[in-house]
């Protein structure tokens, strides 16, 4: 028997394909306009970026402020290859080049800096992010500060959607395995982790490199969705944007990263006509999250079908939800009665 063919996995497949079908349907009947499609593409790319940073920050607990640089590497690798070779082959080759270069860059950065802790690591990764941006700024093949334009638009929502699915599968499979647990233990308590025989530096490097590679995938998608890329797009500010999504959604929760990217993306879109007020609303949203949910929107919560063991369980779900809702209502009622008394 194939061990991965379980009910939860099937549920996920149905969920992923169903969501994709719904998306396509809404586009077909015109509910999702072209502008919304662009917004969704942007949100999708942010989801990949946030999930990849969450792997570094939320799972292995390493504070990286240079994540946009890896996106930049992917974007430029994708852009350059795509301009030479338009089409899906070009995008695949570009993605491959981006993966390779970002993995190498991440390795070079990780080995010396991941010995640092906390603030020092943040500063070091920030510096390395800037170094990569400046290198891109001064290379001929990247067309310097002017950036690349007229990149063939190959990526569409379908490509982005399935890259998100792929990213989530990779990161969640990693999280629920021995190497993933080793990374989580480093975040929890590095000294205890090392005392339990886990080579901490090695696992920090693995998480960092994997996160950087996934970020470069997002970069490739970015380049082939938005025609134009410039070095300034991949500066410190973009790293902060990604960081905000991860913190907003909850460190360590992939569900949180997806939801946060969606929520912040929609807020961003709705306030597009008010560019100045937008930053205020954005800031207020983050402050509210920090005050009321310091562990992020989702905390440690992860959407999971693992509790479903058989088909009976699915049938029992509506009743279960009903019970839960009733319990919450009863609790609220109790509280109100207590307050009245």
């Amino acid at each position: 028997m194939k061990r991965w063919l379980t009910l939860p996995t099937l549920c996920w497949c149905v969920f992923a394909i169903g969501l994709y079908g719904l998306l396509q349907l809404l586009i077909e009947i015109g509910v999702i306009s072209v502008v919304w499609q662009i917004t969704l593409a942007n949100i999708g790319i942010n989801v990949i970026l946030a999930v990849s940073l969450n792997l570094i920050l939320g799972i292995s607990g390493q504070f990286s402020l240079g994540h946009a640089a890896f996106m930049g590497i992917g974007a430029y690798a994708g852009g350059i290859v795509l301009k030479m070779l338009p089409g899906y082959t070009g995008m695949l080759l570009g993605a491959l080049a981006g993966l390779l270069i970002s993995a190498l860059a991440a390795l070079v950065i990780a080995v010396p800096t991941l010995r640092l802790r906390g603030d020092y690591l943040a500063i070091a990764t920030l510096g390395f992010g800037e170094i990569i941006r400046i290198i891109i700024n001064n290379m001929k093949i990247t067309n310097g500060a002017a950036g690349l334009s007229n990149i063939p638009a190959v990526a569409n929502l379908t490509v982005i959607y399935f890259t998100i699915v792929l990213t989530l599968i990779i990161v969640c499979n990693f999280k629920n395995s021995a190497p993933g647990r080793a990374c989580i233990s480093i975040k929890e308590d590095e000294i205890a982790s090392e005392a339990m025989g886990i080579p901490t530096t090695r696992y920090k490097v693995i998480a960092f490199v994997l996160g950087a590679m996934l970020a470069s995938l997002a970069g490739v998608l970015y380049a082939s969705s938005f025609y134009v890329i410039k070095p300034t797009y991949f500066a410190f500010a973009q790293s902060i944007n990604i960081l905000v999504i991860v913190v907003f959604g909850g460190m360590g929760s992939m569900t949180g990263s997806v939801v946060a990217a969606l929520v912040l993306g929609v807020i961003n879109y709705l306030l597009q006509s008010l560019p100045n007020e937008r930053m205020i609303v954005y800031a207020v949203a983050i402050i509210l999250i920090m005050v009321f949910r310091p562990k992020g929107l989702m905390g440690n919560f992860e959407l999971s079908f693992a509790r479903l063991k058989s088909l009976q369980d699915i049938k029992a779900l509506p009743a279960l939800w009903k019970d839960k809702i009733l319990a919450v209502l009863a609790r609220l009622k109790n509280k109100r009665q207590k307050e009245d008394a």
Binding site: R181, I184, S185, D189, A192, M196
Partner: peptide, 14 residues
């Protein structure tokens, strides 16, 4: 120095 936020089982598995 347990891994406080993890389950008892995960602590041993790690």
């Amino acid at each position: 120095r347990l891994f406080k936020e993890l389950s008892v089982l995960d602590n041993v598995r790690i």
